[in-house]
Design a protein around this nucleic acid. Structure first.
Lengths: 73, 73
DNA sequence: CTGTGACTGTCAGTCCGTA
DNA sequence: GTACGGACTGACAGTCACA
């Protein structure tokens, strides 16, 4: 079982870095708190499906694409 | 887009029905509470990413596949 | 008698404001 | 970028009602 929860933080951080964004910029685009984005990227917090979708939208990809990247990581 | 949360309950219920399972049987396979599965299918509860993955595993599909179905619904 | 909806109360964890 | 404290909610156990 590819542990999605382990990969999710890493993939989010990776995609954010690819775009050259700060946590703050991502947080603003996702309509989330900037400290919470930090917790997610560190794996300290597991987001709800709603929050995960906000992050995907902010990263300008489908949530299914984001999840798929976690699965094949 | 924004209505993944609207489709998610319906897709889960659909897939469960396709397999001819009761909420209780799905709950057992997903290691979740029966009444909570009911709440999710009614849209009364929004699952976390972890819970969504448990449901996907119980339904014997990838979470990315499950999410993709919600997006194209 | 099985499957589901609905409503409590409880607790861990998410989420945010502030530093 | 992280750390901390409080508010909010995901998740569960238990129960009753309805088909």
């Amino acid at each position: 079982m590819s542990d999605l929860n382990q990969h999710f933080p890493l993939v989010v951080r990776q995609l954010r870095k690819d775009r050259g964004w700060s946590q703050e910029h991502l947080a603003e685009k996702a309509d989330l708190n900037r400290s919470y984005v930090g917790e997610i990227e560190r794996g300290d917090a597991i987001p709800s499906l709603l929050t995960a979708e906000k992050l995907a939208q902010a990263l300008e990809i489908n949530l299914s694409t984001l999840v798929a990247q976690c699965e094949q990581a």
